[in-house]
């Protein structure tokens, strides 16, 4: 009788031991059942999440948003707006007017701006800093051609200023822009910024970066068949290998 009792105790203890070892599996399943389909609710302050668009964003801040996004900054989100033919025509019209404005200021006057344009590709992108949602910039990126001339522009839809401009005449008509300083001054005039003496020269590409208003560098480059300019914020220019 006593031996039987001892055997029973042994079996019971062994079962307890094994049950304890596999108890976490039961707990895991219970916990998983409770987690699935259970809604976890917490307070949400709607006001805090409102975007205040009243604040104006400076050129440097706008440029930073664009550059930071292409540098892989996780806080920058892009909103791409699909646009129909009407909208594209509207932005194209604004873009052509701005190119004409550039020509009026003496920049790239050689380009023959014919009234017939073919839009090859265009996008409307809003760059938004999720940490500071009041900082946004909406850019119209377009690639179009006119009379054999191919043009790439990045235009701020709010101010219509062109931040990036590339032109390559396909008709083998040389651009022959030689006076770099004069062109840079004209660009500064267009952007309403003051150029300084500070220049950075990228030895690999021979591009010259000229500091304007301490925050922005203007880069202008041209050869016989190609000309471009763009703006970059000072912090980004100074990071580049020169």
């Amino acid at each position: 009788m006593k031996k039987k009792k001892i055997h029973l105790t042994n079996i019971l203890l062994a079962i307890i031991g094994v049950s304890i070892a596999f108890l976490p599996f039961i707990l895991k399943n219970v916990q998983e059942e409770r987690l699935l389909n259970h809604i976890f609710v917490s307070d949400f302050q709607t006001e805090e999440k409102q975007v205040n668009d009243n604040q104006t964003t400076s050129i440097e801040e706008k440029l930073k948003l664009i550059v930071n996004h292409y540098d892989g900054n996780e806080n920058i989100a892009i909103i791409e707006k699909s646009n129909d033919e009407t909208k594209r025509a509207e932005y194209l019209s604004k873009g052509i007017n701005e190119i004409k404005e550039l020509q009026n200021k003496g920049l790239f006057p050689q380009i023959d701006m014919q009234p017939e344009f073919t839009i090859i590709n265009s996008n409307i992108k809003t760059f938004l800093n999720t940490q500071h949602p009041q900082h946004t910039v909406t850019i119209w990126e377009a690639f179009f051609s006119t009379n054999g001339v191919e043009i790439n522009i990045s235009m701020d839809t709010q101010t219509n200023k062109i931040y990036e401009y590339r032109v390559s005449p396909n008709n083998n008509k040389p651009l022959s822009i030689t006076d770099h300083d004069q062109t840079t001054t004209k660009l500064a005039n267009y952007f309403n910024v003051k150029v300084s003496e500070k220049k950075l020269i990228d030895k690999r590409t021979e591009k010259i970066y000229t500091l304007a208003d301490e925050d922005v560098f203007i880069s202008f480059f041209s050869d016989r068949y190609f000309a471009s300019f763009y703006l970059i914020p000072a912090f980004e220019a100074e990071k580049r290998p020169f």
Binding site: L35, L36, N37, H38, I39, F40, V41, S42, D43, F44, Q45, T46
Partner: peptide, 10 residues
Amino acid sequence: NQSKGYQVKN
């Protein structure tokens, strides 16, 4: 309208 929530679904 004053709260947010999440749930896990299979």
